[in-house]
Simulated scan of single mutants.
Amino acid sequence: MSGGLRVTEHPDRLVVTLDRPEKRNAIDADLIAALHEVCAELEARPRLLLLTGGTEGIFAGGADIGQLRDRGRLDALAAINSAAFARVRALPMPTVAAVDGPALGGGAELAYSCDLRVCTDRAVFGQPEVRLGILAGAGATHRLPALIGEARAKELLFTGRRVDAAEALRIGLVNRVVVEPGELLDVAHGLLDEIAKGSPLALRLTKLAVDAPPAAHPHLDLVSQAVLFSDEEKHRRMTEFLERGRTRRPAD
């Protein structure tokens, strides 16, 4: 795929790699357009998503500052980056970001838009926007507080301080840290393999319920469970579980 993305298809997932190494994977308009194409494909045929910058020591150095400097107020209101990241966040099936090296500004916000994050120990997250005269307008102002708490998020957003991998794990910004960069994608795929053991419909409805506003509960949970109780997959999986229990030998 053009636009600064490489897409590899697997039966149950897409692997999407940011591919602008000469620009430190900076997020420009072409990459955003390509990201919308990926989202359209995953909306039409829901699958898992692995989003990565590869293992070259850079996830995404942020938005393309050259383009960002020339954008005006109408461009800001057009939600160029935030609309694409919101679309990633709303994808039907779970998503994982695999982060090696810096994920800064819009690059960090793209990682936050995924459901889960794994990173190498050389990963760095940061929101330097206020030092450039703008705010983190592509999701960090609301996704970061949800991930790490309001006070920590405000500190990072107000100061632009960078967070290394160890701190990111400690504060809940990432789920796992990998020491060897070459193992990053294996760990990310392993996490997706565990997720893929679940019922696809149950995964979709679980994600929908977790991401729903508080006012939607418990009504959304009840309706979702009613749908799942009528699903043939539920009956098959529970029957297999019971049959395994019957064939299991009792402990001596």
Rank of each mutant, 00 (worst) to 15 (best):
G3M: 12
L5I: 10
R6V: 13
T8W: 04
E9N: 02
A26D: 02
D28M: 09
D30T: 08
D30F: 06
V38E: 01
A40F: 01
A40C: 01
A60V: 10
G62H: 10
A63M: 06
G66C: 02
L68P: 00
L74C: 03
A76Q: 09
A79K: 09
I80D: 03
V99E: 12
L104P: 00
L104S: 04
G106A: 15
A108C: 15
V118A: 10
F125S: 01
F125T: 00
G126I: 09
Q127K: 01
A136N: 10
G137F: 07
A138K: 03
A140E: 06
A146L: 13
A146W: 05
G149Y: 12
T159R: 10
G160P: 03
D164Y: 04
E167G: 00
V174L: 09
V179N: 00
L184V: 02
V187S: 01
H189A: 12
E194L: 11
I195H: 06
A196H: 08
S199D: 15
A202M: 08
L203T: 04
L203H: 03
L203N: 04
K207C: 05
L208K: 12
D221G: 05
L222F: 09
V223H: 13
V227I: 15
L228C: 10
E233C: 12
K234R: 14
T239N: 07
L242F: 11
L242R: 08
E243N: 07
E243A: 07
G245R: 13
P250C: 11
